[in-house]
């Protein structure tokens, strides 16, 4: 995974490493000072039961996936669960 522009990730489908479709990428959080990335914010798939995934859910119902969980980015963003 080399450098990638954020615009190219926007709206990309996010899949768990077990093949579950989690949803679409909404945004990524970062520390403006250090440039460190924190979480992917994922708008969950309609059929997804957020209680059955191991990730935190923020106040707007989006999944918070630590950036360290990202395994691969191509047609999908694949995240370890």
């Amino acid at each position: 995974m080399a450098n990638i522009l954020a615009e190219n990730l926007s709206g990309k489908a996010v899949m768990g490493s077990d093949g579950t479709e989690l949803g679409d990428l909404y945004n990524i959080t970062m520390d403006l000072k250090s440039g460190q990335l924190h979480h992917l914010l994922v708008s969950p798939h309609e059929q997804l039961n957020p209680e059955r995934v191991a990730f935190d859910v923020d106040e707007t119902g989006r999944l918070r996936v630590p950036v360290g969980n990202v395994r691969a980015v191509k047609d999908y963003i694949v995240v370890g669960r």
Binding site: M1, I4, L5, G35, Q36, G68
Partner: peptide, 16 residues
């Protein structure tokens, strides 16, 4: 206009 990321190092590497 855009933000360049390195997902391996989990950091923002540049501003476009």
């Amino acid at each position: 206009e855009d933000v360049r990321l390195d997902l391996d190092t989990q950091s923002v590497t540049g501003l476009a």
